[in-house]
Design a binder for these strands. Structure first.
Lengths: 197, 197
DNA sequence: TAACAAGTAAACCAATTTGTTTACCTTTGC
DNA sequence: GCAAAGGTAAACAAATTGGTTTACTTGTTA
């Protein structure tokens, strides 16, 4: 018990090594196209160890999606500030961060969306992990729009969500970047929404 | 020569059979997860015939993407009317049609986006087919926004494109439908855009 | 009717897949 | 210093993959 604790402090655990290697490969090459052998090589871990931590490839995929979920939560918590910044500022920060993220050459689309396209109707646990992630995303947006004094925060959150997902999807195919400032686009959307009520 | 012509009139050619079966399976189960054996069974065609028409699975995938491209072109041409309808009406028709399409239980996300997530950096011909399709989409939107008397039709087309892609992506994961009328959302977006200039 | 193009069915091939097993090694806490 | 946990490497198994080949059956046309 104490062993693993001290280990986790000093260096990455085998479990983390595996998940991070798998995450990279799944994002880059897709899920079915990435074999377990490649993952274990990339993680510098034996096959035995891999199957010790994860009873099957699909359960590893679930763990990778949960890791993705958790690190997104952490990342967005770090760039937003509910106490000192306004709702609009937080949204702007989120969108501008997303824009640079989507423009990164290492961006291969949202992992959860990609997983859905390969596993919908096939593996219920994987599908659930994807949906949980998207639920969290919309909940995060709603928690911000609720701070605006508006009658329909869910509606506005949905509109912003559509913008984010659209940008992500387009960036995945195009890579050319957007001919517009997406922070400004979010602002426009909020303006128009508030005007209407 | 005349043989194939008369054949094509009376019933679907083998090539079409294969492409349509493959399209269905790729959309539903993904590309890597769908084996050639399954495709040939679904198309009721022998393996020999399949490899007679398509030298490899990946070239079949390209053909399927081109078929998808062509049938989308045909479909959108049928629901829009450049002569008798205004730009706003055409956009509204397009968005409302998209909303019902995305809500269909047989909708598994945009095939081109899904293909990108499995083949980006792997097969250049497939990637090109996906990008061609997305180029066409944005060009279609731009051809409509140009009819509005506005200084930045490309910008508005991009905004509308983001909305469409966002809806598609969300529908793929969620399936619950949207708590908003997307035709109205498109209208809002146009309004706000025109206001600003 | 005879030749030929187009199709089928099934055996076959080599490579790869997920997953298991065996035998050995290395670290670490007591 | 030693036992035990946790690790490695590699062989192995069974199924599946994309793709080829062989032998046989159609249907059309000249």
């Amino acid at each position: 018990m104490s062993t693993t604790v001290t280990k986790n402090i000093t260096k990455k655990s085998k479990r983390e090594q595996i998940i991070e290697a798998a995450f990279k490969l799944f994002a880059e090459n897709g899920f079915f196209a990435t074999g377990v052998d490649l993952i274990m090589r990339e993680a510098a871990v034996s096959k035995r160890t891999l199957y010790n931590y994860f009873p099957s490839k699909n359960e590893l995929i679930v763990a990778v999606l949960q890791h993705y979920h958790a690190s997104c939560q952490q990342h967005f918590a770090s760039i937003m500030d509910f106490e000192n910044k306004s709702a609009r500022e937080n949204i702007r920060a989120l969108f501008e961060d997303a824009q640079t993220w989507f423009g990164n050459p290492n961006f291969y689309g949202c992992l959860a969306v990609n997983a859905m396209s390969e596993f919908s109707g096939k593996d219920q646990a994987i599908v659930k992990a994807c949906q949980d992630f998207k639920q969290w995303e919309i909940a995060l947006l709603t928690s911000i729009t609720k701070q605006l004094d508006d009658q329909y925060p869910d509606l506005l959150a949905c509109k912003l969500f559509i913008l984010l997902e659209g940008m992500s999807s387009i960036a995945q195919v195009n890579k050319a970047g957007f001919p517009l400032n997406v922070g400004a686009l979010a602002d426009e959307t909020i303006d128009r929404h508030l005007q209407k009520h």
